[in-house]
Amino acid sequence: MSAGEMRVGVAEFVRRVTARNRLPLDYSVASLRVVDRITDGLRGAGPEQRNVARELFWLGAYAGEVFVRRAGAQWVDFDRGQQELFGQMVGVRMPDGRVWNPIGKVAKRFVAGQEESVQQMYFLLHGRVPMKAAR
């Protein structure tokens, strides 16, 4: 999936997931804690990562979209070196030019547990520009 397709894909994921559950996936910074908790729930259920890879991808993509809407990031296609480094095709670029990998962060949370946090990642973003309202 390319950077240009991420917003539509995330919107579809949120629609699908919230139609079945009352998850507060409202693109707020607080909703990143929900991403951490959902990831913990998947981890606690005991499946192998490859069996929940699709869900982990979309949870990470949702987190990236929160970064876009709340911190001034933009979706970018990673170059070959970044793809090798991050293990992903896309990520987000902050206004200061730094790139981040929220999809990979969710995968790390699944493997490592609470020592990794998507919500904490948000607070560590350099170059964050506060956004008044979701775009």
Rank of each mutant, 00 (worst) to 15 (best):
L42D: 03
V106S: 06
R80P: 04
R128W: 13
R50K: 11
E116I: 10
G97C: 01
R128Y: 13
K108G: 09
I38N: 03
F13I: 12
V111Y: 11
A11Q: 14
R20H: 13
V66A: 08
L25M: 09
E84T: 09
A71W: 11
D96A: 09
V118W: 02
L32W: 07
T18P: 04
V17M: 11
V106E: 04
G60H: 01
D40P: 01
R22I: 13
M89Q: 07
L124K: 12
V35C: 00
K105D: 03
L32N: 06
F78A: 02
A73F: 01
R20E: 11
L124R: 13
I38S: 08
N51S: 13
N101H: 09
R135E: 15
M1R: 13
Y122L: 04
E5P: 04
G44W: 13
L25Y: 13
G81D: 05
G46D: 06
T39E: 01
M121L: 12
M121T: 02
R20K: 14
S31H: 03
V10C: 00
P95D: 09
V35M: 04
V68S: 04
G4I: 03
G72S: 00
N101F: 09
L85A: 01
E116V: 13
V99A: 02
V34W: 09
G72R: 08
R15M: 14
R54G: 01
R93M: 09
L125Y: 10
G127M: 14
E84C: 07
A63M: 08
R80I: 03
L124S: 12
F86G: 02
A71P: 08
A53W: 06
T18H: 06
E55H: 06
P24F: 15
P47R: 15
E65I: 00
N21R: 15
V10F: 04
E48M: 13
A71T: 05
R15D: 12
R93E: 09
Q49H: 07
Q82I: 02
A112N: 14
Q83T: 03
Q82E: 13
A63E: 08
L125N: 07
L42H: 10
R20Y: 10
R69Y: 14
A19P: 11
K108C: 01
S31A: 13
G72F: 08
K108M: 08
D77H: 01
A11W: 12
R43I: 12
E5K: 12
F67T: 00
L42P: 06
G113D: 08
G64I: 02
W100G: 07
Y62A: 03
G46V: 04
V106P: 06
A11F: 10
A133M: 14
Q82T: 04
E84A: 05
K105H: 05
G4A: 07
G41N: 15
V17T: 15
K105S: 06
L25T: 07
T39I: 00
Y122P: 01
Y27T: 10
F123G: 10
P24M: 14
P24N: 15
F110P: 00
I103G: 05
G72D: 05
G64H: 00
S2Q: 09
P102R: 10
Y62P: 04
A30P: 05
S117K: 02
G72A: 06
A53R: 11
G46K: 03
F110D: 02
